[in-house]
Design a protein around this nucleic acid. Structure first.
Length: 269
DNA sequence: AGGGCAACCCGGACGC
DNA sequence: TGCGTCCGGGTTGCCC
């Protein structure tokens, strides 16, 4: 659910708020969220500081003063809240990292996880990810896209092809590029491949600027997070009018993934 | 290679 | 209010 823009928002926010503060307490309420026995995990995390928060694809990496890292993936429905015992949301918190009175709550980690890794293990874990969309070059994108035969949507959400795009933003990107998400990559001409590439960064940038499409606030009084919910052009807009041509947006489900698109102006090739 | 699909997991929304 | 049911959805891995 959280995709690149949402994780980027968390990265910036946490970089401003938790760096270089000692982790005074660690609470694990769901052992499956971590990758070590609870006592070992706590031993290696408690008392350390977070010296850097990085993002890679949909992951967040908390670099600890010990040299180890915490690798976070929120998967479906996971989110974080930075606050204290008074203003924390009334939800199940799978993991809590305390920085004195300030607490970072990890909520909704069902398939999501927070893994303690050495830098070698971290590299291994992230090795298969494709390029970051913001660092991608057109010729590289074209070259790899031209080898692809399948539909655009599965390619865009494939983390090995390009890292950080999920269900929501792939639909928005296809709309922006006026391409049908089910179109086969092999049918794209050069101009269409270019317009697909050109759609990626602006869609993500706009989403980041608007606060992403998350449901939950990052801190008490947070009004910005989720601001992109109202800026979506096709995602979750089934039956509503296309902002470009007025045609009703369609929703198609295939292999348990829903896709939204305008059947008129996202023409097949 | 790519499409299809099951499994993973459980909080919380919803219905009665 | 209270209990049972079921959905969501990124990722992996397996099969064809």
């Amino acid at each position: 659910m959280p995709e690149l823009p949402e994780m980027e928002t968390y990265q910036v926010f946490l970089s401003h708020n938790v760096l270089n503060k000692p982790i005074t307490d660690v609470e694990i309420n769901r052992e499956k969220s971590i990758n070590k026995p609870v006592s070992e995990f706590i031993l290696h995390v408690k008392g350390k500081t977070v010296i850097q928060v990085r993002r890679r694809a949909k992951h967040l990496i908390f670099e600890l003063s010990s040299g180890q890292s915490l690798l976070l993936h929120l998967m479906l429905g996971g989110w974080m809240f930075l606050g204290n015992e008074e203003n924390a949301p009334d939800r199940t918190k799978q993991v809590i990292l305390s920085f004195g009175d300030l607490k970072l709550y990890f909520i909704g980690l069902r398939l999501g996880y927070l893994h303690l890794l050495t830098s070698d293990e971290l590299d291994k874990e992230l090795a298969d990810l494709g390029p970051e969309p913001f660092e991608m070059k057109l010729d590289d994108f074209e070259e790899r896209m031209n080898k692809k035969k399948g539909a655009l949507k599965p390619i865009l959400v494939n983390q090995k092809f390009m890292a950080g795009i999920g269900n929501c933003y792939s639909d928005e990107i296809c709309f922006e590029a006026r391409l049908n998400p089910f179109e086969k990559a092999s049918n794209l001409n050069e101009e269409q491949t270019k317009s697909l590439f050109s759609a990626i960064k602006p869609v993500l940038t706009k989403a980041i600027e608007a606060g992403g499409y998350m449901d939950n606030p990052m801190y008490e009084g947070d009004k910005k997070t989720g601001g992109f919910n109202d800026n979506m052009l096709v995602y979750e807009r089934e039956g509503k009018n296309c902002f470009r041509c007025g045609t009703k947006i369609e929703r198609v489900e295939s292999s348990s993934t829903k896709s939204f698109f305008c059947p008129n102006c996202q023409k097949s090739c």
